[in-house]
Design a protein around this nucleic acid. Structure first.
Length: 119
DNA sequence: GTTCTAACA
DNA sequence: TGTTAGTA
């Protein structure tokens, strides 16, 4: 299928799909016309990319994790250690971010003279 | 009409 | 990422 079709099936813009390729996340074949030619598998791959992206992982991390994903239905399977490793790393990153945000909120609470949980 | 690459009022 | 330009 061509880029517009994959875009339609995944919701990713053609621009994003080309970007994923630049990052080595996708390797579509090329037609004699120069147009990218994606196989059906690409749909699943893009969904995996979107999932990992929404988890806060960067394209470089995703590039390392992607090959560890089993061609199951929707989600991924913690196969190789690299995957668990990268995911655990990202998780601790998030935990640290949450701590900083909580601090920032605490300061704002004082400045505002607010109660514990002002939305 | 669609896609491609490259580049940025 | 969007978007636009100039092509193939």
């Amino acid at each position: 299928m061509r880029i517009s079709e994959l875009s339609r099936q995944t919701g990713a813009t053609p621009r994003a799909l080309r970007y994923y390729e630049e990052q080595g996340l996708l390797r579509p074949a090329r037609r004699s016309s120069g147009y990218r030619d994606y196989d059906a598998r690409a749909v699943q791959t893009v969904r995996h990319i979107q999932l990992l992206l929404s988890a806060g992982l960067g394209t470089t991390a995703i590039g390392e994790i992607l090959p560890c994903i089993v061609d199951g239905t929707t989600v991924l399977a913690p196969t190789c250690p690299e995957l668990l490793d990268a995911l655990a790393e990202e998780r601790s990153r998030i935990t640290k971010s949450m701590a900083k945000l909580a601090e920032a909120r605490g300061i704002l609470d004082q400045l505002i003279g607010a109660r514990a949980n002002p939305r």
